[in-house]
């Protein structure tokens, strides 16, 4: 099989105009992923006219063959989260060090994980192979100094943990969570990730009619509870639970230990230096807004949190504490 020279190229998008899918690649060279999200780095690269005009296009088979020939760095750790719970901060702290490749909520990975919902007749084994190949494409060293490779997934991806673990059974993973009211208030401010059209309701055990008639607070709480439950049910299989309140210090200590990576004092200082900025909008100074969020919580948010999320939060806390002081 002829494989185009893809050194320095990264997957830009997955699309399905030819079965099973095609991949567009964007030239990144040795540019690092330092923006809060994968698509932001890609978007910055597309400001260059070359990248607008020239994209490699390959089939899924080429992606798999390329991974077989050149699998890239093995992932050091995966980051899952209930959303709005500090995972972007963790990713940005890790991305502060040039030896780390940090992929944050990459849309091509999302596309691969959604394939079984958007295409019929795909076996889990096939999906696993494509996921391995896509991750392999993103873990390619491009500057020569990379040693570690981390992936932050989208919140709903923890529902696909069984498949991700099949693809990467030995990669340790963490799940971040936060006080339910803080998360729900943020969700109400940023509706989009967890509205019915964005994710398939069947993933959360709901049907179309009930989703459409449900208040957004309740729907968001049900989705978040399903996400937390997936982490809770599986955390003993290579996982570690992290409460938002443990951040940022846990990144340099328990999380790094769990991922099997270690930093010098200078490297830890560089990571902590990130924490003064807002993680998703780094041009803004970070302010702890938990108190403000609680004041902003409506009765509907409080009721939804109490009914769907508080029991889950208590179970997560119990499991985390039982797991021991290093967790």
């Amino acid at each position: 099989m002829a494989i185009p020279k893809l050194g320095g190229w990264v997957p830009l998008r997955v699309y399905q105009d030819r079965e099973p899918f095609m991949i567009d690649w964007c030239y990144l060279g040795d540019r690092r992923f330092v923006e809060p999200f994968y698509d932001q780095t890609i978007g910055a690269c597309l400001e260059h006219p070359f990248n607008l005009l020239f994209r490699q296009q390959t089939t899924a088979a080429v992606l798999v063959e390329r991974n077989r020939q050149d699998p890239g760095l093995k992932p050091s750790g995966f980051i899952f989260h209930m959303s709005r719970s500090g995972s972007t901060l963790i990713a940005r702290m890790l991305a502060a060090l040039p030896q780390n490749i940090v992929i944050s909520e990459a849309s091509p990975i999302n596309s691969i994980l959604k394939l079984r919902f958007t295409s019929g007749q795909i076996s889990e084994q096939q999906n696993v192979e494509w996921l391995q190949a896509m991750v392999g494409a993103m873990g390619q060293p491009r500057s020569g100094s990379e040693q570690h490779f981390f992936i932050k997934f989208e919140a709903w991806h923890v529902l696909m943990l069984h498949m991700i673990r099949k693809a990467f059974p030995n990669v340790p993973w963490i799940f971040t969570y936060r006080d339910p009211i803080d998360v729900l208030v943020s969700q109400m401010d940023h509706l989009g990730q967890i509205v019915p059209s964005a994710l398939h309701y069947s993933l959360f055990g709901e049907d179309a009619n009930s989703v459409v008639s449900m208040p957004p607070e309740e729907y968001s709480a049900i989705v978040l509870a399903a996400i937390c439950n997936a982490a809770l049910s599986n955390h003993q299989d290579g996982g570690m639970l992290i409460n938002y309140s443990q951040l940022p210090d846990a990144v340099c200590s328990s999380i790094s230990d769990f991922f099997g990576v270690h930093w010098t004092d200078e490297e830890m200082a560089a990571m902590m230096n990130i924490t003064g900025r807002h993680s998703k909008t780094p041009d803004q100074t970070f302010r702890n807004d938990s108190q403000k969020k609680r004041e902003k919580a409506t009765d509907e948010v409080r009721q939804a949190a109490e009914r769907w999320l508080d029991p889950m939060y208590e179970l997560l806390e119990k499991s985390r504490i039982e797991a021991g002081p290093q967790h």
């Binding site: 060279g29 006219p49 020239f54 490699q56």
Partner: peptide, 27 residues
Amino acid sequence: REVVLADEGLQQQLRDTKDTTSFMKLM
């Protein structure tokens, strides 16, 4: 465009030109 995608030397020349007007002239 297909020729460029198969030729790393051409790609490098074009990548070295960030300004859109200069890029179009070079193309």
